[in-house]
């Protein structure tokens, strides 16, 4: 266990988020079982009040959750000096088997949390709580994941032991037995680049279709999710090469550093933001024409689609900009 201030702050944060989500989950279970909008009973009244509590809790939790994703990467990067062979966050996360799963959980939780907030937004716009059950069912999926993330994060940090000088000999001998590889398996650049631009174009086209004609919402959402995955893979496969101007460096974390002008934040913010809004568009599809949602969801979906397309477009533009002005030229 490393008693680093950032580690302590991440653990505190996870603990708080865990408690809060647990609380929200408990309310969620009661709502799922006892919700009856037609009833005027005291229970129903108190449940209606508690929905405010749950939305507030989750809004805060999710904002902090997003921040903790970046703090986690930053901390991993900051700690790399403590481990033999770790060059950046990629190496630190590889120190034990929990590092990458935690990162993955943080990203998944981020996407789910963002989607939840979108559903919640739509729900509060309707007078008859049309999405309430779906919303709380989704919450019951998120809550265990957030708790699991907190647990895994604890396992990760408690399993970190710095390689420091001991009294008998240098820590040297740990070096022969174990080597933390910071290498990230990357897909071949050329096919990946084709897939990347194809996915982005597909998102643009399907988004255009959905925005103007109101058709193909499912398709758009699915395509944007695929584009997100392809985007992440491309970041590792070929975009990173242009950022670092090195044909062998595939690290997805170094670009968050000052040396690269914090370009990584712009890349991840646009990509993750686009993924959330794209996902949100799809999740809202089943309620598109139901009850009071007729006036709300189509309009909201249009906005979400527009945001997705703009964010992905920005991402692509940043990538193109890097490729154009990079000192590296790949022989395609």
């Amino acid at each position: 266990m490393i008693l680093h201030p950032a580690v302590l702050s991440l653990m505190t944060m996870s603990l708080l988020a865990g408690i809060m989500v647990l609380l929200a989950g408990a309310v969620g279970v009661r709502i799922l079982f006892s919700w009856n909008i037609k009833s005027g009973s005291e229970l129903q009244l108190s449940l209606e009040r508690q929905t405010y509590l749950v939305s507030t809790i989750l809004a805060y939790t999710f904002v902090f959750q997003i921040l903790s994703l970046f703090l986690y990467i930053y901390t991993a990067d900051n700690l790399h000096g403590l481990f033999v062979g770790a060059m950046c966050a990629a190496g630190t996360l590889n120190v034990n088997e929990y590092g990458y799963p935690v990162l993955l959980l943080k990203i998944v939780n981020f996407l789910l949390a963002g989607t939840w907030l979108i559903v919640n937004y739509a729900d509060t716009r309707g007078y008859d709580y049309p999405l309430i059950r779906a919303k709380y069912a989704l919450l019951l999926l998120i809550a265990p994941l957030v708790l699991f993330e907190a647990y895994e994060q604890y396992r990760y940090f408690s399993g970190l032991h710095a390689d420091i000088i001991t009294s008998c000999c240098g820590a040297l001998f740990s070096q022969d037995t174990r080597n933390i590889s910071g290498d990230i398996a990357a897909l071949p650049a050329r096919p990946m680049a084709i897939a990347f631009f194809a996915a982005m174009t597909a998102t643009l086209v399907s988004g255009h279709l959905f925005y103007w004609k109101g058709r193909g919402g499912w398709l758009f959402s699915a395509v944007s999710l695929v584009a997100f995955l392809v985007g992440v893979a491309s970041l590792i496969s070929f975009i990173s090469l242009y950022i670092y101007e090195l044909p062998t460096h595939h690290c997805p974390f170094c670009c968050l550093q000052e040396e690269y002008g914090y370009i990584g934040y712009a890349l991840y913010a646009t990509l993750l933001g686009g993924a959330v809004t794209g996902l949100g568009t799809g999740v809202l599809m089943p309620w598109r024409n139901r009850g009071s949602m007729k006036q709300v969801i189509p309009q909201l979906q249009r906005t979400l689609t527009l945001v997705t397309v703009i964010l992905y477009l920005l991402f692509t533009l940043i990538v193109l900009y890097r490729i154009k002005f990079s000192a590296l030229t790949l022989g395609w």
Binding site: I2, L3, H4, V7, V84, A162, G170, L172
Partner: peptide, 20 residues
């Protein structure tokens, strides 16, 4: 033998530990 990187690492974790 003591490597420079080990010294750096040790100092770092001493300060981290004290701060923690």
């Amino acid at each position: 033998p003591i490597l420079k990187s080990e010294m750096l690492r040790t100092y770092d974790s001493i300060f981290d530990w004290r701060g923690g």
